[in-house]
Simulated assay, not measured.
Amino acid sequence: MAQAWFATGPDGLDDWELREVDVPAPAAGEVTIRVHAIGMNPADYKYPTRPDASFPFPLGYEVSGEITALGPDAEIGSGHANIGDEVLAFRLRGGYATEVTIPAEKAFAKPATVTQPEAANLFLAGATAAELLELSGAGRGDTVLFHAASGAVGVSFLQQAAVRGVRVVGTASERNADVVRRYGGIPIAYGPGLIDRAKDAAGGAAFVASLDGVGTDEAIDVSLALIEDRKRIITIVRRDLESEGIVAIGGMLPASAAFRDAVRGELVDLARRGLLEVPVARTYPFADAVEAARFLKEGHPGGKLALLT
């Protein structure tokens, strides 16, 4: 028997429950993973509260661990694998578990230089950032604006943009300005006067895109003031703005899902080469998932969180 966390109702963390579950043996094209670390994301507590959620709702979307069983003809996303190999996996349902059986193509070989908590947090934020960068259309020498650049998606975006030679002006609180600098961005504080600060930071260069990771009216208003082509204003928060021509992306949307699946191998390679790191702020025991999720929801983690089994 394994253990797994479920949301049993739509009322948030009070409805989370730890249960014992049977883990099926892997069928053809499947793999069983003994989970060592679980990546934590806002989607973990947001999706069970959606109107279309059904219960019990299995929690968690990305993990790292080691292969304990392979089904017939199973080949992971990065190629051949053996029992005992360390892997990370993404876009699964029910990752808050001590063991999972999943489609083998969702798993990728874990680089030896990446820790289990880092690996468990690589894909969701990294794939979101990669999609933002792709849709921005920015290339070498271009300048973009990123709202909430010190967050998990922002930090991944900064690193991926640096690989492409894209310059990023990023909003952040004063206490997080050094995070933006550390990963190659130009930090500016949000608040009154943001448009002028953004222009000054760009040094006369035009912004080719604005990426929104926070969803505030200020972020949207500034983006509209600086970017003429609304298809170059892309948000991961405000689906309500699509009618105004602003592009909204999210893992539940088919186009986003397809892109994020396709980019997984590239993200692993960047991590293997030391070009993409995942700052982990805290780890929690698996049994403390509710406490960890509450901190993620209400606090300022300053990096990713992981559950350890």
Rank of each mutant, 00 (worst) to 15 (best):
A258H: 06
R164P: 04
K46S: 02
W5Y: 12
A120M: 06
G12V: 07
E66D: 14
L92R: 02
D11Y: 08
T32W: 02
A152Q: 11
F146I: 05
L135T: 00
G303A: 11
A43G: 09
P279Q: 05
D212H: 04
R238S: 13
Q116F: 12
E244I: 04
A293R: 01
A119F: 03
I227S: 07
F259G: 03
G139P: 07
E17C: 15
K199N: 11
G250Y: 01
D14F: 00
T235G: 10
L145Y: 04
D15Y: 05
L241N: 08
D142T: 07
K106A: 14
V247M: 09
P117A: 11
L122M: 08
A25C: 06
A7G: 09
A258N: 11
G137D: 10
F55I: 07
S64F: 02
N82I: 00
P26Q: 07
A271W: 00
K199I: 15
D11S: 15
V31C: 11
E242S: 15
A257Q: 08
L276N: 08
D11M: 10
R182T: 15
D229F: 07
A104S: 12
I234T: 13
L133T: 02
G151N: 01
R19H: 01
D212V: 06
A258K: 12
G94K: 02
L13R: 02
L224M: 14
P285Q: 03
G84S: 11
T128N: 02
V180N: 08
G193Y: 05
A209D: 10
T115P: 03
G250H: 04
G65V: 07
P301D: 08
Y190A: 10
A7K: 01
V166E: 04
A74Y: 00
V263R: 04
V180L: 12
R19A: 10
Y61V: 11
A25Q: 14
A27I: 06
R91Q: 15
Q159F: 06
T309A: 14
K110Y: 01
I188G: 05
R260L: 05
E242T: 15
V153M: 05
A289I: 06
D240C: 13
H147D: 08
L275S: 13
R260I: 02
D15P: 04
E99W: 04
V153E: 04
T283Q: 05
V63D: 00
S78F: 06
I227W: 11
K110P: 03
N121V: 05
E86I: 00
F57D: 00
I220E: 12
K297V: 01
E244C: 03
V208R: 10
L275F: 10
T101N: 05
G170W: 02
